Computed example of a mutant assay.
Amino acid sequence: MKFINLEEGSFEFFNELRNGFSIKATATNKTYTPLANLLPADSFGTGLKRLTTTEFSVRLRFAFLEKFLESTFYRASLGSPYPIVEATYTKAVPGILNSKYNYSKVLFAVSDYIKTPPFGIINYQVYAGQTFGAAPYTFLDVAPGNELYYYNKYAFNTMIRYQYIHDRFAGLNYEHNIGNGIFKILPKLKFRQFYTVKALWGSLSDANKSLNYKQGSNFLSLDGKTYLELGTGVDNILRVFRVDFIWRVLPEKQPVSSIKNFGIFGSLRFNF
C-alpha cells in the first residue's frame, strides 16, 4: 500500500456565461508528504520534508443545455444532451507560500452521455494533457490505479497505484450499457449487460525521468505504448449491485509478478 498526506488550500472564482459557457479561476497551494512506500521528499532536496507547490489555473467549460441539482452551497451536474468540453491551463509559480517548482500544465477533455435506443446507453470520456517543465511525481500525471476489490469507474482497475507517471498522456474511458443483452431469456431478473474499454497512452521526458527515477522508486512510463483494459459485467442486480470482470490486455508483460491480468470487482449502482 502507498500512503501520502496532502494539505491543500484554495481560492476559486466561478462565472457562468451564456449558452453553456463557464470559466473557473483557481489559486491553490498543495503540500504533499509521502508517508509509506513512495519516494520520500528528501529525494528531491537534502533535508526536504514536504513537496509544496502554488498553482494558478483557468478552466474553460462548454456544456450546452446542461442541467443541475443545486442547494445553498453545492451544485451537481445532471448532464447535457450534448458533449461537454473542458480545457484547463495551470501555472506553478515558485517563491509563493513555500512553493519551489516552476512548470505549466494543459488539459483537454470531452465527455458525453448518449442514449442509443434500442441499443442502450453510451458513456465516454476522451482526454489529453501535458506538463511542461521538470517536477516531482506528485505534480505530474499519476495514472489512477485501483488496489481495491471495489470497482472504480475513473481508474484502471488492473493497475496498481503510482505505477505509471507521465508528463504527456492521452486516454479513453468508454462504457456501453446494452440493456438486457444475453439476459433477455430471464426478463424477470431485469439484469443489464455492459462492456467497458479503458485505454491510456503516455510518456515521460528525460528531465523528469532523471528527477524521479531514483533508488527506492518503482515508477514506470508507458513510453508511448498502450495500456488497455477490457471489461464486461452485470448491472442492476437487485437494482443496487454491479459486478465487473476486467481483463488487462496491454501491455502484455508487467514488471511485478503480483499484478494480475484479470480481476472481478463489485460496486453499488442505484438505478431509478
Rank of each mutant, 00 (worst) to 15 (best):
S221M: 08
A143N: 06
G181P: 02
S205H: 03
N212R: 06
N123Y: 12
A135P: 14
G224A: 09
N123I: 11
N177C: 02
I165P: 02
L200R: 09
R192Q: 09
G216T: 08
V142P: 10
I122T: 12
L148H: 04
I246Y: 06
L204I: 11
R242H: 07
D223L: 12
L148A: 10
I165D: 00
P255L: 11
G233N: 08
L140R: 14
G145W: 15
E147G: 11
N212L: 00
N180A: 15
D223R: 13
F156D: 05
P251N: 04
P118L: 12
I160T: 08
Q125N: 13
Y124F: 13
H176N: 05
Y164L: 06
V126W: 05
G171L: 07
T226W: 05
I246S: 00
A207K: 10
R242Q: 09
D244H: 04
W247M: 05
S203H: 00
R248I: 00
G145I: 15
P255H: 11
K214Q: 09
L172P: 10
Q193C: 00
A128H: 03
F139Q: 13
I122P: 12
A135Q: 12
Y162A: 14
L250K: 04
D223I: 08
S205E: 12
V240Y: 08
N157T: 00
Y195Q: 09
F132M: 09
G179T: 13
M159H: 04
T138R: 15
Y127R: 14
S210L: 08
V240A: 01
I122R: 02
L211K: 06
G179K: 11
L250D: 02
F139I: 15
L186P: 06
D235V: 09
R248V: 00
K190N: 03
I178C: 13
D223V: 14
K188W: 10
